[in-house]
């Protein structure tokens, strides 16, 4: 009897398991679809006017209707965001290595960094406008300012948490600070760095769109704010949707880079 039950249980378990596997890959799409359906139903049920909450069908219609300006402004926002993000990567890596280099620099600059990060970046946009005028440059700089902090913190953390034993072994062999940084510190901080890119890229979108909304004639931020002033609410939502799509795409790209560059740090999934 027990032999029979032992035999049947794996069989009955095997089928739902393989089904579950494909459900996992399908899940993001199904949940997104579910959200849109819920949204649509909610709008119908509450009889929302499109000037307050347009249904997704109305938003997609707006995307088709205004495709040309949406496409142009999406590209502009993508451009300012990635440019600001690229500067943030270079500067963040540099400052992170600098801060992580010594305990004194770390102690001295860290409070300054925290204070700087606490400033709402939207408050800086007017200053940037005074310096550079409205348009692309403030958007790029806002994207940079908002996204470089997580990169700095992560790189510095990676450097600051070298195991003391590793350092002892190398120092006993006559290693200089530079040797330890090159052989251990920098490779060690790379997973932190690539991990922070995912956070930084989404923040960069926040920065560029905020700046475009306040002070630009281009970009999705500007498009949405002018659509809003014309009560074209479906177009505002179309802009939000495009931002979400760009955000997800860039996030996925960063996640892919992370996996490619620091596979050893994800060893649990790779081990034998």
């Amino acid at each position: 009897m027990s032999a029979v039950t032992d035999n049947t249980t794996p069989v009955t378990q095997a089928r739902p398991l393989s089904a579950r596997m494909s459900w996992v890959t399908l899940a993001p799409w199904l949940y997104t679809l579910g959200l849109f359906v819920l949204w649509e139903l909610l709008v119908i049920a509450l009889e929302m006017p499109p000037t307050i909450l347009p249904a997704p069908s109305r938003v997609f219609q707006a995307i088709l209707q205004y495709w040309s300006p949406i496409w142009k402004n999406s590209l502009q926002t993508l451009y300012t965001t990635t440019l600001g993000f690229a500067i943030a990567v270079v500067a963040g890596l540099g400052i992170g290595l600098f801060i992580g280099w010594s305990k004194t620099i770390y102690a001295g600059l860290y409070p300054l960094m925290i204070g700087f990060n606490a400033i709402p970046k939207v408050a800086l946009v007017p200053i940037l406008v005074i310096w550079f005028g409205i348009g692309t440059i403030p958007a790029v700089l806002t994207a940079f300012l908002i996204s470089f902090f997580p990169i700095v913190v992560n790189v510095a953390t990676g450097l600051a948490t070298i195991e003391p034993e590793t350092e002892d072994v190398l120092r006993a062999l006559g290693a200089k600070k530079m040797d330890i940084m090159l052989k251990v510190g920098i490779p060690r901080s790379m997973p932190y760095f690539f991990g922070s890119l995912k956070i930084a890229i989404t923040l960069a979108f926040v920065g560029s769109v905020v700046s475009e909304t306040v002070a630009s004639n281009y970009g999705l931020g500007n498009m949405m704010s002018s659509a809003q002033s014309q009560f074209n609410v479906p177009l505002v939502f179309a802009g939000l949707l495009m931002l979400a799509v760009e955000g997800i795409a860039m996030y996925a790209f960063m996640a892919w880079i992370e996996r490619r560059m620091t596979g050893w740090a994800h060893r649990s999934t790779m081990a034998q």
């Binding site: 195991e163 034993e165 590793t166 002892d168 072994v169 120092r171 006993a172 062999l173 006559g174 052989k183 251990v184 490779p187 060690r188 790379m190 620091t262 050893w264 740090a265 060893r267």
Partner: peptide, 19 residues
């Protein structure tokens, strides 16, 4: 007076570099 490089060291924690 400074680290002596004729010494090899090993600790309880093997501290192999994972990369």
């Amino acid at each position: 007076t400074e680290p002596v490089s004729i010494v090899g060291m090993a600790f309880q924690n093997p501290t192999m570099l994972p990369w």
